[in-house]
Structure formats: C-alpha cells, structure tokens
C-alpha cells in the first residue's frame, strides 16, 4: 500500500472547477439564448411596429389607392380558403396512405420505398414544389383537361385549385409521418384484443386504433396547416395574385356561396413578399407590411401552440393507457 497516491482531503471536499469549464458553461448558455433571443426579437419588432396598424378596418377591408391604404381582408380570406382546400386534399390521402403503410403493408419493399420517398420529399426545396405545380398541375394536367373537356383555358392557368394541390403535395409527408407515428403508438395488444373478439381488421382499425391515434393525427394536421399557411414559394406561380379586385368566390347553382377554386387569390405571405420587394413605394407601405406580417405570424403561432398543447395533452392521455 506504500505506492498509493496520497490523497488530500481538500480535493475530496471541493473539486476544482477549471476556468475553461466555467467558460464553456457560460458559452452554451449564451448559445441557447440566441434562438430565444431571435424569436423574441422578431416577435417584439413585428408587434411593436404592427400592432398599431391592426384595426377592424385593416382586417375587413380590401387594399385601396393602389395598395397604399386599406386593409388585407382578401389576403386573410385567401389564406383561409387555400389552406382549407389544401387540407381537404392532403389529409384524407395522407391519413389513408399512412393507415395502409402501418396496418396493411408490413415491413416489405413497398414500405421501404415509401419510407425513403417520404423522408426525401420532406427535404425537397419548396421552390421545387412550385416548379412541379407549374409543370405538372397547370401545364400538364390543366392544359390536357382543357383539351379533353373543351373548356378553353379554365384548368390550364394558375388558380387556387392548383396552388392548393401544390401545397397539398408539400404537406403530404408531414401528414403521413405524423399519422404513422400516431398509429404506431397504439399498443399491438389492443389490436390483438380486438381481433380476438372476432373483429375484422377494419373494425379494429376503425373502433380501436383510430380513436387512440386521433390526437396525433390532429396534431399533424394542425402543423401542416400552419406550414401551408406560411409557405410562399410553391404558390408564387400557381395561383397567387398581386391584386385582385374581387374575392375568389362563386355561387354554386347560382345560390350557395362557395370558394371559387378556379379563381386566383391574394394571400398573406405572398402579400408580404410582394409589398416588401415589388411595391412601387415600399417605404410608404411599410405599415401595411408590418400589419400583414403580424397577422400571419399570429396565425401560425396560434396553430403551432395548438399543435404543441394537443400533443402534450394526448401524450398524457396515452401515458395512462400504457400503465
């Protein structure tokens, strides 16, 4: 025991904290503050400059005087309309595809191809979706529909239908992935119990799996709405209008008012882009830009907050299930 390193009691009592450790501790804390700081800065600036602009008139009136005055109601309406159309297209398709992949396909080649494709699609630049929208939806599908149906130039031009379809393709991976996660979170034992009671596969999915996966699917849907509402690049050329003197509405059978999917539309994020970069007097319209940004950011924040709290809520509920 004579070779034992002598141990000073003082070392045991207080380990020496070296200077660089303190430095690193502080450094990562500063790093962690930067995203929060950026978020707060953006929020603060937009609210500071934009809050004064938000009035009832701003929210309910169309742009006036060559878009230097007035409100942004057509943009708000357009954003709602296009996200509604988008989710109507993407949600059923995405959820159905995810159900097929999780409950029917099994871990085969089909599953892996889709997996890889969906993952890669999530990283495709949004402007590429814009190109796709123009090349495929408008020029290929639209023009050919017009040829076949003899409708002149109804389908083969930018309109809300194609813009919504483009966004739907963009959010499809989001919906598929979140639905898959939600379905996989339902314990296999629940499916076994239902099947053992003589339920068919679909009865099991409909009565046992989907009710439990509802929360996760809803969260994914909200997130994709938020994503779709904020995207600009895919709709630049597929249906957005710089200025439209009318709302994109029509009357079904001449009576029932509904969104006109064949019309162009104004949209919040596009409005911000266009007002900030292309308007004749960008300085004069600055208040409108701040106001529009505030409205857009408030919308996406609310949606994201809703998604986050939904997830927390459903995680808690699922937590008690697995006990």
């Amino acid at each position: 025991m004579s070779h034992a390193i002598p141990l000073r009691i003082s070392q045991l009592i207080k380990p020496r904290t070296r200077l660089e450790e303190i430095f690193l501790d502080i450094l990562v804390r500063i790093f962690a503050l930067i995203p929060i700081g950026a978020l707060s800065f953006i929020m603060f600036k937009i609210i500071q400059k934009g809050a004064g602009v938000i009035t009832w008139e701003f929210l309910t009136q169309p742009p006036l005087d060559g878009m230097t005055h007035g409100g942004i109601f057509p943009c708000i309406f357009g954003t709602f309309a296009i996200t509604l159309l988008m989710i109507l297209m993407a949600l059923p398709l995405g959820v159905a595809a995810a159900i097929y992949l999780v409950e029917f396909a099994g871990p085969g080649l089909f599953f892996r191809i889709t997996r890889a494709a969906v993952n890669n699609l999530a990283g495709v630049p949004s402007i590429v979706f814009g190109l796709f929208g123009v090349g495929f939806f408008i020029l290929f599908v639209g023009r050919n529909l017009d040829k076949v149906l003899q409708t002149g130039l109804l389908f083969g031009q930018p309109c809300m239908l194609w813009a919504a379809a483009t966004l739907a393709v963009l959010v499809l991976p989001v919906i598929i992935v979140s639905t898959e996660e939600a379905l996989n979170a339902v314990p296999q034992s629940q499916r076994a119990a239902s099947l053992a009671l003589g339920a068919t596969k679909w009865q099991t999915i409909w009565r046992v799996v989907l009710p439990q996966a509802r929360g996760g699917i809803l969260t994914g849907a909200i997130l994709s709405i938020s994503r779709g509402a904020g995207e600009t690049a895919p709709i630049l050329f597929t249906g957005c209008a710089y200025f439209l003197p009318r709302l994109p509405v029509t009357k079904l059978f001449g009576v029932i008012p509904m969104i006109n999917p064949f019309d162009q539309f104004m949209e919040l994020s596009y409005h911000i882009f266009i007002m900030a970069t292309q308007s004749l007097d960008a300085v004069k319209t600055l208040p409108i830009q701040y106001g529009t940004t505030l409205v857009l950011i408030a919308m996406t924040f609310l949606l994201n907050l809703a998604a986050i709290s939904f997830r927390v809520h459903f995680r808690k509920k699922m937590g008690t299930v697995s006990v």
């Binding site: 629940q190 076994a192 119990a193 053992a196 003589g198 299930v321």
Partner: peptide, 15 residues
C-alpha cells in the same frame, strides 16, 4: 374468433 375467445397475458383493456 367470436366462438373462441382469448384472454391475454397482459391485461389489455381498451382506453
């Protein structure tokens, strides 16, 4: 399976 019921190892009531 309706005629032949099954009880599992770990209780698995539906939520």
């Amino acid at each position: 399976r309706r005629m032949v019921g099954m009880v599992f190892q770990k209780q698995n009531p539906f939520p």
